[in-house]
């Protein structure tokens, strides 16, 4: 019934519109004036609209900023994040400056130079080399600055000294994350996708860590893998961390917005990102509210539950971290060593 009603209303709407147009066109025949020729009235109406809508647009820009400012991400909680934020502020101010000069000019010219009294003919102005050189060179100089500033920031971030950084692996699969700490030796044991249990009968863990016990393969022993029950990544304030990413099925992306960290997790390769957290979760809760938590989001479309592929991060003091760490069981305490190795060739 509703559908029929919607259909009838839609149909009547179209009929009405047709009739209105017919009437206006008949009127134009009566007045001997083309109804679709742009006249003085149209020019005045539209030029005024340009001014009004242009002004509203710029006002709405400020309104949105002040109304929604509190929703934006808080200041970065990492060392490199601070310099990203500085670059962001600089670039934002620059583009807002250009925006606030050029947009008003556009709407103002559209208003001022409408065809009409005092403006019947346009000024023939085909080119002007001086002006054109100015507005090519000035953007070029400004952009040189932006590029240099951007690249120096990029280099600082990507060339971060990772010596001494705690190595943690983030392993992605549809639709959850698992973390592996490198333990006391700060080295991750090697892994291979064909060792992932349960696909490999002799496999002992869900990340495919090679758990053979021999001289060259001992790094895995003190590794610690989070469990679904306690699926939280613990970090120490001020302690650099080197995240290494792997994926088991499709491309995922590890996004830690509060730390200004994002890196794709690509099946078949390992990617990494180093950073140093600067604020504990407790400190953030104090300023951002009790509900605050650092979260890891998936930011590359990965399937039906992409929107809910998350993991909590906790930044704490060294003491709190040590206490938590002492309660964790290492991989060698949890699993039996692997004796038989399948057809797999372990990659070093």
């Amino acid at each position: 019934m509703t559908n029929i009603l919607i259909f009838i209303v839609g149909f009547l709407g179209i009929v009405t519109l047709v009739q209105i147009l017919r009437v206006s066109e008949l009127m134009s025949a009566v007045h001997k004036q083309d109804v679709n020729e742009v006249n003085e009235k149209d020019n005045i109406f539209n030029s005024k609209m340009m001014l009004i809508v242009g002004a509203l647009f710029l006002i709405s820009f400020f309104w949105q900023y002040f109304e929604w400012k509190h929703l934006l991400l808080p200041e970065a909680s990492s060392e490199h994040g601070v310099i990203i934020d500085e670059l962001m502020t600089f670039t934002m101010l620059l583009i807002i400056f250009v925006f606030l000069i050029t947009q008003p000019l556009l709407f103002w010219y559209s208003y001022k130079y409408r065809k009409g009294k005092g403006n019947e003919t346009a000024y023939y102005f085909a080119h002007n080399n001086k002006l054109e050189i100015i507005w090519t060179v000035v953007p070029a100089i400004v952009l040189t600055g932006v590029i240099l500033y951007g690249l120096s920031t990029w280099n600082k971030i990507t060339n971060a000294d990772v010596k001494g950084a705690t190595v943690i692996e983030l392993y992605a699969k549809q639709f959850n994350w698992t973390a592996r700490y490198s333990g006391a030796d700060n080295k991750l044991g090697s892994a291979h996708y064909k060792l992932v249990s349960p696909i490999n009968p002799s496999g002992t863990n869900a990340l495919g860590v090679d758990t053979r016990d021999n001289d060259v393969n001992a790094a895995w022993k003190d590794d610690i893998i989070t469990t679904p029950v306690d699926n939280v990544v613990h970090l120490v304030k001020g302690q650099p961390v080197l995240l290494k990413f792997r994926s088991q099925d499709v491309i995922h992306s590890a996004f830690l917005p509060h730390f200004r960290v994002q890196m794709n997790c690509v099946p078949g390769m390992t990617t990494q990102f180093a950073f140093t957290p600067t604020k504990t979760t407790a400190e953030m809760k104090a300023t951002e509210g009790e509900d605050f938590d650092y979260v890891l989001l998936c930011n590359k479309i990965c399937g039906a539950s992409h929107y809910n592929m998350q993991m909590k991060f906790i930044v704490e003091t060294q003491e709190e971290y040590d206490t938590w760490m002492s309660s964790q069981k290492t991989l060698s305490e949890k699993v039996s060593t692997q004796t038989v190795i399948t057809e797999l060739v372990t990659q070093k």
Partner: peptide
Amino acid sequence: LWKASIRF
């Protein structure tokens, strides 16, 4: 647009 005679 500058010093044009804009027809809307």
